[in-house]
């Protein structure tokens, strides 16, 4: 598996299949409408705008809780994705949304701190997470979210997570 001459279709279907299984197995991610773009191992979370995400109808602006949730979802998916990458590439796991036992166990959030930099506009939002430190038990993840301009963040967050233990 993952050899230099492995067919491109096989690589893409393994990686996309794993990512889809991971994302689609969480009801709340579907409810918020979050999807993930993948370029190699790099993930970008996308939150398409929807009326139900509004927190301040006067401005209007995205709800602060939605922003927090979007960042937390991005952090958890990135952390899980990077933790299972090697097993996925070696063919040791093949998560399938239809087979609950095949899904990776998710890290648990210990704490999460959101820094609100500007109000979330009524349009699509994007986020990327960076695993700053990942040990056997604990991980620290930083997340950035933006809308129109990659360099103009509307929120960032740091979270600590308890990694799932095998066995």
């Amino acid at each position: 598996m993952a050899g230099r001459n492995e067919p491109l279709d096989a690589i893409k279907s393994r990686r996309n299949g794993t990512l889809n299984a991971l994302v689609n197995s969480v009801p709340y991610i579907r409810w918020l409408g979050i999807t993930f773009d993948r370029r190699g191992d790099e993930l970008t979370a996308v939150l398409p705008f929807d009326e139900k995400l509004i927190g301040n109808p006067m401005l209007p602006a995205i709800h602060g809780g939605v922003t927090a949730a979007f960042l937390e979802v991005t952090a958890i998916v990135e952390l899980t994705w990077s933790a299972i990458w090697e097993d996925m590439e070696q063919g040791r796991i093949a998560p399938d949304a239809a087979v609950p036992e095949s899904l990776p166990r998710l890290p648990k959030t210990i704490d999460f701190t959101v820094d609100y930099l500007r109000s979330g506009l009524p349009r699509d939002a994007y986020a990327r997470a960076r695993v700053v430190r990942s040990g056997r038990r604990y991980a620290s993840v930083h997340v950035e979210a933006w809308q129109d301009h990659r360099s103009k963040l509307f929120a960032q967050a740091t979270g600590h997570f308890l990694m799932p233990q095998n066995g």
Partner: peptide
């Protein structure tokens, strides 16, 4: 989905 526990994001909101 394993446990049916509500997402942390909901608690945040």
């Amino acid at each position: 989905p394993d446990s049916g526990v509500i997402h942390g994001g909901v608690i945040s909101a």
